Amino acid sequence: MKKEKILLAGATGYLGGYIAKRLKEEGYSVRLIVRNKKKVNFNDQEFEVYEGQVTEPASISKAFEGVDVVISTVGITRQKDGLTYMDVDYQANVNLVDAAKVNGVRKFIYVSVFRGDQMRHLQICAAKERMVDYLKASDLKYCIIRPNGFFSDMGDFLDMAKGGRVYLFGDGKLKLNPIHGADLAKECVRMVATTDQELNIGGPEVLSQNEIARFALKALAKQPKITHLPDWVRKMVLWFVRTFLSAKTYGPIEFFLSAMVMDMVAPQYGTHKLEDYFLAKAKVE
């Protein structure tokens, strides 16, 4: 049976890169939407690359011709181009949904965030969940994928560990199971052929914040020094960043500080281990 044509938006990001490779490995015909072809590291012989701005509907309309399924990982991480979460995580993805509908796309797969519907008071989650609402009301077949954190997000632990000490809020016993991009990409691609409408997903290991901190310190050959801060410090930092920083600047900090006081354990998938990831990153850095 002929494989469907997949349009991938967000291919130059951490997760998007893994999804693109996984799609090709499984024999799909893949078209990528990118902002600048010159910054794409993919081999043009393997991927059809379409240059357009997802924030500008007219520039991407032709990218949907002949497309069966759209996968979007579009969202702001630490970009500094003046755009807001509502500009990108919401409106840019809405532009993709609208173009998909006009062109008769069969299914739309969107990567949001685990428990995002419970954190709509946060800037990044408010935009992502508004997009989820829009997609669900679009009449398109859809799947919402909700990872609870990428291995790349755990880089904050490594950054702290470089100074010889990791700071945690509370007793560090709250747990999470972040997932490697390759493991998440595998499940994102699997959703192309399923009827599932939502997937909560994490990695194979459920770890406490203390364990993650120790992994980070060990990877950098540091003594296991962990300082546990009272929650009022976290609340004070949140007040400060919300008061004195712009939303696009404090958004990642706001999310990190809020998620750090929640158990973020999602259904377990994949095989990659966080300790191995830290060790590999430490060697490169």
Rank of each mutant, 00 (worst) to 15 (best):
I226Y: 10
N200Q: 13
D87T: 09
R120M: 06
Y50M: 09
D153R: 03
D196R: 14
H272M: 15
H121M: 08
N41I: 11
L176P: 02
A20F: 05
G203I: 05
M119G: 01
D81A: 11
T195I: 06
V94P: 07
R78C: 03
D159M: 12
K2C: 00
L15I: 15
W232D: 13
L257A: 11
L207Y: 01
K235W: 08
F114W: 07
C125Y: 13
Y110M: 09
L257H: 10
R22M: 13
R35W: 11
D231Y: 15
I76M: 14
D68E: 11
R106S: 15
E187D: 06
D159P: 00
V54H: 02
D117C: 08
G202R: 07
L238A: 10
T194M: 10
L174G: 07
N210I: 10
N41C: 12
D89L: 05
Q223M: 09
I6S: 04
G203A: 12
L229R: 10
A137W: 07
I201Y: 02
L238Q: 08
K3N: 13
K162H: 10
V113E: 06
S29W: 02
I226N: 11
I179S: 01
N200H: 10
R214L: 12
V69G: 09
R115L: 08
K186M: 09
A137Y: 03
A282L: 01
Y250T: 09
V189P: 00
G203H: 04
I145N: 02
D276S: 12
E129G: 01
A282V: 01
V241L: 07
I33T: 06
G16P: 09
S246W: 00
G155A: 06
L140H: 00
G66W: 05
G164C: 12
L8D: 04
Y28M: 14
V54R: 00
V97E: 00
L176R: 13
F256T: 15
K225C: 01
N148P: 10
E48I: 13
Y134W: 11
A137H: 12
K273H: 13
S152A: 15
G172D: 06
A259P: 01
V237W: 04
